[in-house]
């Protein structure tokens, strides 16, 4: 078996609003098309265009909306079929899914994580409801649903202990994910599925897609998002990680769920520039679609 690799790593946020706005046949509610999130839909279209030239055989996603306290869990049934209703935005997301899982890779990820000292758990209950974070992210990246996926849960390390501790654990999980991909010979697209700043409005307009309502919650959030995207564009993810605890605290960032740090760990803490396909807000939160080409085989941690 030839050694596998990550073909690209993406920050691919999962507001269910984006699937709602896209009106795919799998989602029950219909949107008005008023266009509040068009910028982000365009960003995803740009990402899909970029990925067209890449060959990969699995999507590996870290999702904030499967929350686990006891370790990091990974979907490990060959297939899942059902209806996933978002408990927070059930008016927007009631998605019928029918997906396949790359169980061999999932098991390898659990083994590599365990070998690195993490608590890992394979999820083998076929009745399990796949969360909207996984579904939204995968759908927007590859709506064909023609490839298997592997989904990792979001461990509560950040809130149980501290952001610093959470980041350490997610970097280890990211490295373990990369090793599993390499050992199983997979060509994998890895997706960290989180927003950046994450302060929501707590009210919704009559048409949830009304563009007059949509904007960043406050300027502090926008400035933090700009700064973080600046680090990504400059290829300075070591500084991004150094500032991550402040970002999480001050911008209520969804990075507290670990998805971005896991992604950076899988990529070897990129010190090369990322492509930002677009940035936009959803119900006040800041969201960016970002792509990293694969890095050199050995990660370089830290910058001078």
């Amino acid at each position: 078996m030839s050694q596998g690799s990550i073909v690209a790593g993406c920050l691919a946020p999962h507001p269910p609003h984006l699937v709602y706005a896209a009106n795919p046949p799998q989602n029950e509610p219909r949107s008005s098309g008023a266009g509040a999130w068009q910028g982000l839909l365009d960003a995803y279209a740009s990402l899909r265009g970029s990925l067209e030239s890449k060959e990969y055989d699995v999507l590996v996603v870290h999702t904030p909306h499967w929350r686990t306290v006891v370790g990091h869990h990974v979907l490990a049934c060959p297939e899942f079929k059902g209806l996933s209703v978002d408990p927070v935005f059930p008016n927007l997301f009631r998605f019928h899914y029918d997906l396949r899982v790359d169980v061999e890779l999932a098991e390898a990820m659990a083994e590599e994580g365990e070998a690195a000292g993490l608590v890992m758990k394979t999820m083998r209950n076929p009745d399990f409801r796949v969360d909207y974070g996984t579904l939204t992210c995968c759908h927007l990246v590859r709506p064909e649903w023609d490839l298997p996926i592997v989904a990792l849960s979001s461990n509560r390390a950040y809130t149980y202990f501290s952001s610093e501790y959470g980041d350490r654990e997610m970097l280890i999980l990211g490295e373990a994910t990369r090793r599993a991909i390499e050992k199983t010979g997979r060509k994998a697209l890895v997706l960290g599925s989180c927003s950046l700043s994450h302060r929501h409005f707590t009210e919704e307009p009559a048409d949830p897609e009304d563009p007059a309502f949509e904007h960043i919650h406050n300027r502090n959030q926008a400035l933090w998002d700009e700064r973080v995207l600046g680090h990504m564009k400059m290829g300075d993810c070591a500084t991004l990680l150094a500032e991550m605890p402040d970002f999480i605290d001050q911008a209520v960032s969804e990075c507290a769920e670990g998805s971005l740090t896991w992604l950076l760990g899988a990529l070897g803490i990129p010190d090369w520039p990322a492509t930002v396909h677009g940035y936009g807000t959803v119900i006040g939160t800041g969201n960016a679609v970002v792509e990293w080409e694969p890095g050199p085989p050995t990660a370089v941690e830290g910058r001078p």
Binding site: W66, V70, H73, M123, R124, N125, D127, S153
Partner: peptide, 13 residues
């Protein structure tokens, strides 16, 4: 409907 706990899925549905 059915519910499977996010952490304790091994306990059943």
């Amino acid at each position: 409907w059915t519910r499977v706990d996010e952490d304790f899925h091994e306990l059943g549905t």
